[in-house]
Write a protein that binds this DNA or RNA. Structure first.
Lengths: 143, 143
DNA sequence: TAATAAACGTTGATTAGTCAACAAAAGTAG
DNA sequence: CTACTTTTGTTGACTAATCAACGTTTATTA
């Protein structure tokens, strides 16, 4: 019977790791002169990967609420990285990347890859693969 | 040569997992009638585990900046979960838990443990142990 | 068809985190 | 001892997330 130690729990570890990685990524973005944030970039990548969709669908995919997505999109639209289109259902806005948005995804994917590689530098290829599988399994279990 | 896929990176996975776990924990806290948040609770636990220290030290331990810690402590102090004491160095405030603060740690540790156990329900004991080791190793590499 | 329900995006209020700048106190050097 | 530097906590401005409430528009159903 093991004692539960909070600083050793997935909750603590993922939260802390996530925060540090975001800080590193933010610094990397900033050093290129851009003021796009990691969260804004994440949203761009999701749209790029999953294709056009409306704000509610984005919210569900990102596990955030609609208000959070709305405000992120406001920032992205101001920077001309994204546009909202209205179709026949006038409640819904279809979100898609602009030319600049697509470029931003390309440029910052490299920065993101670098950050991840640095983070994983302590692992063998097998360990890294293992970690990835375990995290994916965990995510699927809780989402 | 593997292609880098962002939704498969530690950055994406840890951030998403962390967010979902926080949401679950928040819901659990709220269902007990408390308005203490997961982040506030985390800070309480750190103080409880690591002993009294000042705000700068807390900030460093939590990988947040001093302003963030200051504001969290303001909330905790308002709720009488924490007190700031001044010693000979009048710049520095030593933070310690109140009676209520200690009780809060106990009560919510159980909720936290439940949340973690539910999250890990898809894993064998060995897998869970493995995940923990890998996350700890990763954290040590980046912090 | 008319009334009701659901979906969508939006807004305001609150908690959280970062950054830059600041005053006050303590430490260091000349 | 005085001048400079560092440390500590604080504040304001900003991005981010959540919750509750709201108005429109679409869908359902009685």
């Amino acid at each position: 019977m093991k004692k539960y130690v909070f600083t050793d729990s997935v909750g603590y570890l993922t939260t802390t790791i996530s925060r540090i990685l975001q800080q590193k990524l933010q610094a990397k973005f900033k050093s290129t002169g851009s003021n796009t944030t990691p969260e804004q970039w994440r949203l761009l990548v999701v749209i790029s990967n999953e294709g056009e969709m409306n704000q509610s669908q984005l919210a569900e995919l990102q596990h955030k609420d609609r208000a959070a997505i709305k405000r992120l999109l406001d920032h992205l639209e101001t920077k001309n990285l994204v546009i909202r289109k209205s179709g026949k259902d006038s409640r819904s806005h279809t979100i898609s990347l602009t030319q600049e948005g697509r470029k931003m995804v390309q440029v910052f994917t490299k920065a993101s890859e670098e950050t991840v590689n640095e983070a994983l530098s302590c692992f063998s290829e097998e360990e890294a693969k293992n970690l990835n599988q375990l995290l994916n399994k965990l995510l699927n279990n809780i989402k």
